[in-house]
Design a protein around this nucleic acid. Sequence first.
DNA 1: ACAAAATATCTTGTATACAAGTATACAATC
DNA 2: GATTGTATACTTGTATACAAGATATTTTGT
Lengths: 233, 233
Amino acid sequence: MSTVVRPSLIEIAPQSMRPTALPDHVYAVLKQRILSCAVQPNERLIEKKLCEELRISRTPLREALNRLSHEELVSFQPHAGYRVAGITLAGFRNLIELRSIVEPQAAALAAERATPGDIAALRAQATLPYDPSEDRSFVQYCQANSRFHLLVVRCARNPMLENIVMSALDMYQRPTYLRIGRQMDPGNPSSKHHAIVDAIEQHDAEAARKVMYRHIRGGGERIMTALRDARIA
Amino acid sequence: MSTVVRPSLIEIAPQSMRPTALPDHVYAVLKQRILSCAVQPNERLIEKKLCEELRISRTPLREALNRLSHEELVSFQPHAGYRVAGITLAGFRNLIELRSIVEPQAAALAAERATPGDIAALRAQATLPYDPSEDRSFVQYCQANSRFHLLVVRCARNPMLENIVMSALDMYQRPTYLRIGRQMDPGNPSSKHHAIVDAIEQHDAEAARKVMYRHIRGGGERIMTALRDARIA
DNA sequence: ACAAAATATCTTGTATACAAGTATACAATC
DNA sequence: GATTGTATACTTGTATACAAGATATTTTGT
């Protein structure tokens, strides 16, 4: 393949993702498009079109699509192709259940294992930027929220938990985004976040668990009713 | 590709896996070889050799290898190739932690949601076949144990939890197998399994959670000390 | 006009050729 | 003798051609 620049790959990739190899590039770009709803849920993904658009061949593209389908961000049927994963109420309910199982326990472990440096990082990320007057801030808000939750899990020092939560947060992003796009009150979670950091700072595992549980359940319920009302899923 | 039979693909694939497409075949065969330690931990996996051996091309093989590396059963470095994942004490500790977070909660949900049919299926799978005189029964024992734990999670009616536990059980198999292969007492878990089914049958979520937690922690600790003593990891 | 079947087109599935990067072995030098 | 540079062989990375299966359309029969 030639060494021409691929402008379409530079795009809006967030600084958190630092792809190096071609399949990673493609994966990051497609994931970004999906999570930001730049491509609609259930929209079909045609290999050939994506290849031409991204100026790559099918091999690295398919690798990226396979990864995305494993993370259930795209659905796949043999010989029938790939689609952007749909958003369903049942799926979101399962997602909330998963998060409310894993993250509170991870927060409890974080309370036991977090270093002073960890706690400073958490505190810095606890307050979310949210400015209703700017449209662009929606996506940034979601991403900042994800970063905080990921940072908490990271304090538990268990990469397996980290991967699970990372994937769960990715799946959580679209419903959050759709809901905020319609109903302007994100129910500012910054205070909850600071309460979680407080508990971790005091090494109070039980408190960290409880606050995180209530935070996830509360936010999840609000998004779920919004989705139901808007008949999105 | 020609339509000749591929004898190497039929092999020892367990009946639980029903692969249809070529990448699924390959995935199942490789996974089986890895989990049964037919290929050693850290052993290198050369694409060309596997292609010739399995009579397939590199495309479906690479798809299978990618899946396996995503499940952390094989490790991968760009341009340096694939290896069977190694077994480390830290990794196993993380795995126990993950299981002891997810499975007890899943058991609690199972106690709330299991149908009479579910409970009958659990009861049927609770007693594990173990005959120390037969070498072959080791693998079967491990698989039967995995099936029981998977069946419990299935009662929670949450496919995401199911996938996580399925992957965790796969990763758990090799340490279990290695340990039993050295030290003959598997510490018969059948009684614990029946206690779990009892709790689920009585819809006692709290009891189900506690028994499952102790079961996983106990078994995990025993395997971990055995690994440490044998200097496997 | 409606339904069913056949065909044409499009999409994915697999194989393979070629490009690029890595590791190893050997030789030269310190 | 150890170490570093270099060349070669080997392995993976990407692209593309061809095969097989699915879908949509059209045509034909009732």
